[in-house]
Amino acid sequence: MSESLLAVEKLNTFYGKSHILHDVSLSVDKGELVALLGLNGAGKTTTMRSVLGLTRPRSGTVHFEGRDITGWPSYRVSRLGVGYVPEGRRMFNELTVTENLQIAETGRGGAWTIERVFQRLPKLQELRARKSGRLSGGEQEMLSIARALVANPTLMLVDEPSQGLAPLIVEEVYKILAEMKAQGTSILLVEQNALLALKVADRAYVMDEGRIVYSGVAADLERDRNMIRTLMGLQEVAS
């Protein structure tokens, strides 16, 4: 096995008695942007949660930088350099923009500081004293990404960053993701909008009913009309 940054092997995760993930295996190499696609309920978010230690997998392993981190509590996974931009943004609503960022600072050092984030995203600087619960959805998504950035993660897990946002803002979000990738941050990107994700991804996995049903180079998948149609929900789900 080549030395992947993140290597997930045969993960099985349950919520109570329901078996959500079935032998999910995937990997992210250094500097790679990998898309994890699939319809709603396919198990994408659960896969992320299992990697992060927010939901404990019943079997299988998660390796990060060669280290077995299966079942580690999420704060320890995070301290290894795994950032998280959750679905729905999950702001600390009562905290200001600046406070949201201060919380994320790790003191680990790295390219991103609060100053630098404000330079890159001047809109956030303007709003720095505002409670994050009072930002627009787009501003919250930016803050959610900025929050992960200031921790200077080696790997970012980004869950549905385009959800519910206006096209212009989605474009801006994806621009930042591309910049991060260019700076060497590895990204695992969960996205329902397959075409959007495939434009920036190196490789992609497709999940269905808790299983990985496809994996390959992003450009190849982009040409697979049937798969794209299924993923974009233009046709009945192929079972």
Partner: peptide
């Protein structure tokens, strides 16, 4: 600050280290 954040979302605060 962490305490005030955790009151709003304990899971996120632990996913942030």
């Amino acid at each position: 600050l962490r305490l005030r954040a955790a009151i709003q979302d304990t899971e996120m605060i632990s996913a942030m280290g």
